[in-house]
Design a binder for these strands. Sequence first.
DNA 1: CGCTTTTTGCGACTCAGTCGCAAGAAGAAG
DNA 2: CTTCTTCTTGCGACTGAGTCGCAAAAAGCG
Lengths: 148, 148
Amino acid sequence: MPLPQTEIPGRLQTQLAERGIRMTGPRRAILSVIETATRHLDASQILRKARTVDASVDRSTVYRTLDLLKRQGLIDELDLMHLNGEGHYYERKLGRDHIHMACLRCGKITEFVSRTFESLKKQLERDCHFHILVARLEVGGYCSACRR
Amino acid sequence: MPLPQTEIPGRLQTQLAERGIRMTGPRRAILSVIETATRHLDASQILRKARTVDASVDRSTVYRTLDLLKRQGLIDELDLMHLNGEGHYYERKLGRDHIHMACLRCGKITEFVSRTFESLKKQLERDCHFHILVARLEVGGYCSACRR
DNA sequence: CGCTTTTTGCGACTCAGTCGCAAGAAGAAG
DNA sequence: CTTCTTCTTGCGACTGAGTCGCAAAAAGCG
Ligand SMILES: [Mn+2]
Ligand SMILES: [Mn+2]
Ligand SMILES: [Zn+2]
Ligand SMILES: [Zn+2]
C-alpha cells in the first residue's frame, strides 16, 4: 500500500531546521524511519526501526518526537478503524490530504485522494467559520475483493 | 451541543430485540444512558451513569455492550481529536452521519450535517468499489470564537 | 570553550481496554 | 413453572499504549 507522494521526500529534517528546532541523533533516526516508510507505522514499529539506526533510542523519545511532528503539522495520526488493537498509526503529511478506507474483513488499507473532499473542507471552513488544521476521514467496510 | 435527532429516540432496545439479541438489566441501563445522552460520552462516563440505574454494572460489561452496539452498527465511536486523553467517545448512530469539528483551543465540539459528505461517500463506494459500513470525519482546528 | 536551553534515557506510573472463568440470568421448549 | 441450553455478567488479574519527573547528556550559540 504505497503512500501518494506529492512532495519531494527526505526533507522532514529541513522543515524542522527551518523552524529553529534542534536536531539530534534520535530525532534523525526517527525522522528517517517516517520518511522512508512505505506503509502506516505505529509507535512501536517506529521504535523498532529507529533502533536499527540508533540503538539507544527510547520509547518515550519516539512518543515525544511524534508529538512534536503532530504539533508542527508534519505528520498525521490515524486510527485505521483500530483493526489491530488500540494504537495509532502515523504517516507523513504531504500536499493534499487523503482518505483512508479499512477493510473490516481482510484488513487492507486503501488510500484515496478526492477533489470532493477538498471542497467539503472548504465548505466547512466557510459555513462553520472554522479554521481547519487537520482533517481525518476514515472509512470502514468491505473492499472490492471482500464484498459479496 | 445537542445531537441531531433524525430518528425516533428510545428504540435501541427494540432494535436489538428485532435482531434476536438478549435483553438484560445491565444492558437496559447502558442503552438508556446512550439513548438519553445529550453529549458525547466516554466509557467511564457511561459506566458512572449506568450505575445510577443499576448499581451492579461492571466496567467490562460496558465495554462488551459498546462492542456489541458497534458491531450492530447502532453506535459510532469517535476520537474527538483526543482532546482529553486517549479514550473514545460514543454516540447513537442516527439517520445521516455528521462531521465532528473539535476546537484545539477551547475544546468545543461542533457537529455538521453535509450533503457534500453524503456525495463523497457515494463517490467512494462507486469509484473504489468499497462497501462503506462506517465513515468518520473528524476535524481539528480553531472554532469561530477562537480563531484570530 | 563555556553557558544556557533543550532533549534524552530511564523507570515508574496511569489509564483504557481485554480476558478467562465460574456463577447467574434469559429465553425456548415442554 | 420447571428444565435445559446458551448467552451474559461480575470479578480480578492482566496487557499495552502512552505519560511523567528527573538527572544526565547533548545542541547550539557566541
Ligand atoms: Mn483512537
Ligand atoms: Mn456527534
Ligand atoms: Zn478486504
Ligand atoms: Zn474554540
